[in-house]
Design a protein around this nucleic acid. Sequence first.
RNA 1: GGGUAGGUAGCGAAGCGGUCAAACGCAUCAGACUGUAAAUCUGACGACAAUUGUCUUCGGAGGUUCGAAUCCUUCCCUACCCA
Length: 373
Amino acid sequence: MTFSVLSNSSESKARSGKIETAHSIIETPVFMPVGTMANVKAIEHRELHEIDTRIILGNTYHLFLRPGIEILKNAGGLHSFMNWNKSILTDSGGFQIFSLSKLKKVTDEGVEFSSHLNGDKYFFTPENVIDYQKIIGSDIMMPLDECLPYPTDRDVVKESIKLTLKWEKRCYDYFCNSKNESDVEQSLFSISQGSTYEDLRKQSIEQLCEIDFDGHALGGLAVGEENSLMYDVVDFSTDLLPVEKPRYLMGVGTPVDLLECVERGIDMFDCVMPTRNARHGRLFTTNGEINIKGARYKNDFNSPDTECKTYTSENFSLAYLRHLFISKEVLGIQLATIHNVGFYLKLMKDIRSAIEEDRFLSFKKEFLKNYLS
RNA sequence: GGGUAGGUAGCGAAGCGGUCAAACGCAUCAGACUGUAAAUCUGACGACAAUUGUCUUCGGAGGUUCGAAUCCUUCCCUACCCA
């Protein structure tokens, strides 16, 4: 993987760049649709390609449980299994330690899980998580980390970042010294933790930056803290991150979050928001978010978004989309997903253009004026 | 004509003397969702005041009772069965 910065905003920390993996060229800042289970929910590959998706996420924990590593190995990796020829980034399962916390037991050695599917017990270690991701064949792998809820006591966070550091070192060593499944190049990022404690977060970042990871992620954010607090953490964090490596803010966020965090120097994002909210009938539009199920759209035959042109917004009315949702037709979910993911990618594309033309802040201002009106 | 089972909030359906403005489901309305156990979850849902509050409801009309959706009388209606 290579990364290069192409342009820097003169008025903020925003920057545009380019990541090249074995499978695609990814222009940054980028939003990566989440495709946990070997698919981005409710949207077909050809639609992802149509909106020029260059990278999606997968999840080691979920893929490990289903279809299982053995089957992915037999398939020749995830790209081949799901027939996705662009890049894939896989999360390690660290987030599941957090979100499935009732089903886990963390020790120094790793984390024991009970499968949420059938209760079977598994043990994830920094090493086997790398093994699994090598078999999955993701372009960018993430190390095992411990993502804590918010708020968490300082003392607990302090211990946790030690554990995460230890785990990530082991991931890195094992990544460097273990055999690859194929000659397709894979990369490994770090994930800093430290919750919102400035000194702990800084410590976590500094220690991780001593290791030659291919990129650096901020984890454990957008887990319930105030937005402004998250922005602050991002702000002081990016100051510590090397300029020559991509910076990835995990699990974020809303369109507003993307703008705020690009401004603070983030290059990569992922979030379930566009896809999940689509399934729940919430559409992102140039003029703000709308709940498509609302009675006020019963007789509204206008496009949901005349500015952001997606297959959905160019072909279907609010009233029709509402009808599909009210009738629980899957097409409604599909069209909403196409629109939301399209909206996110278009936003990122506009952000990149704005940075390249060094008008990021005015772009942001204009976007927010419409979006929050 | 005889018999049986029923008629409960928009619909379906519990409740069968007080703790009932009445369970639950559907429909409706609103909200939430940030490295996906999420096509999910939460709330409202008789009417007004809009938090404790008040008023009108359980086919109709009478009655019994301190008290009735719940018991009695009678009428109306529905479904099925027998003539």
